[in-house]
Amino acid sequence: MSTLTSTQKVNWKGGVSPYNVSYGKLMMWFFLMSDAFTFGAFLISYGTTRLSASYWPDPNEVFDKAPFINAKLPLVFVSIMTFILIMSSVTMVLAVHAGHLRKRKEVAKWLSLTILGGILFLSCQAYEWTHLIEGGTTISHNMFGPIVNGHHTPGPAAFGSFFFTITGFHGGHVFSGVLINTIVLINVLKGTYDKRGHYEMVEKVGLYWHFVDLVWVFVFTCFYLL
């Protein structure tokens, strides 16, 4: 009766989790759901403001620079950032998988690569922000307005404020993800989870990390593609 049922039969009579997951993982799921609403609210307010404006900058014109290359390359750099984040999500899944098999060294290897991916992504974002800010784009001003008589005019101020707020909030999530992953990596190396008998902590930070990747998928579409 009290044994855990597999996928279909579910016990609501107490003593076992009707969700078939531990308390920690369930709470991580609920936290991520609430975080989805936070990001959703940001992106929807961005969409509302953008739709209410009669002019909006073309992302192909705004994001057309990549480091070391002196040419107009629309979307190339942000594609690389997207690839880095997808890749770090893959290494995270592989870390979780190695955790199921309780292979400590494998977990440490994949988790280190995930952390590296996070740091690379943040560095790319730092470059992108620096480039934009040096070009005169701030939360209150930018020069991506329509071209009048051959001169760029100021674009909608909301463009910069939404861009820096939303990518900044996402970057903040990546940063805290890197920190949490590092703490878990230290615990993996110390053998904490071997003593505990399971690597569930890796699964929990894995959920968080994939969520950060998920948010980037939407940020990428809303800011760089549409």
């Binding site: 996928t7 279909q8 579910v10 009707p18 969700y19 078939n20 997951v21 369930l26 799921w29 999500s89 995270m92 899944v93 894995g206 959920l207 994939h210 969520f211 990747d213 998920l214 998928v217 939407f218 990428f220 579409t221 593609l225 549409l226």
Partner: peptide, 29 residues
Amino acid sequence: FLSLTLVKAFYIVAEFMHLRHEVKNLILS
């Protein structure tokens, strides 16, 4: 663009976050 975004979101949540393989109660919640 929006359809492809939803395709990507589905694969991340279903496979990477493993939601597809959890019990129905959790998926619905």
